[in-house]
């Protein structure tokens, strides 16, 4: 199992978390789930995920701050970020620093296929 790439899913909605983790697992990742921004920052201090699936509306620390912390940390230089947000407006910072952006509502397949593509990019 340890050779699988690691994905961190940061999402506060229980059902959506379930869907996303199955989709990402199906795409070949090992999955860790956290439900708020503070937990996310804690986990990022300990782990080095290959993929972060990030919701922007988070309790505690806003998603955009989590993205900022990831991009500041040289240890996470290779971490890819997939933003899944209900916001259709995207800031310049987001567009530059996120690898992919998916806008909710989004199904299982879209997340699965995107994760699959990103996994291929990672293993390349």
């Amino acid at each position: 199992m340890s050779e699988l790439p690691l994905a961190l899913i940061i999402e506060d909605d229980e059902v959506i978390t379930e869907i996303f983790s199955i989709a990402v697992k199906e795409a070949g990742f090992e999955v860790i789930v956290v439900r708020d921004g503070i937990q996310a920052l804690k986990t990022l201090g300990a782990e080095t995920p290959d993929l972060v699936l990030l919701d922007l509306h988070l309790p505690g620390v806003p998603g955009i701050n989590v993205l900022r912390e990831i991009r500041k940390d040289p240890r996470l230089a290779h971490t890819r970020v997939l933003i899944v947000s209900a916001d259709t407006t995207q800031s310049e910072f987001m567009r530059i620093h996120a690898d992919r952006i998916l806008i909710k509502p989004i199904g299982f397949y879209a997340v699965y296929e995107t994760a699959l593509q990103m996994r291929e990019e990672i293993s390349r």
Binding site: D13, I16, G107, F108, Y109, V111
Partner: peptide, 12 residues
């Protein structure tokens, strides 16, 4: 959010 849940589970 609820649309995401419905679509996600249907696709699952």
């Amino acid at each position: 959010s609820p649309l995401t849940s419905i679509l996600g589970i249907a696709e699952m």
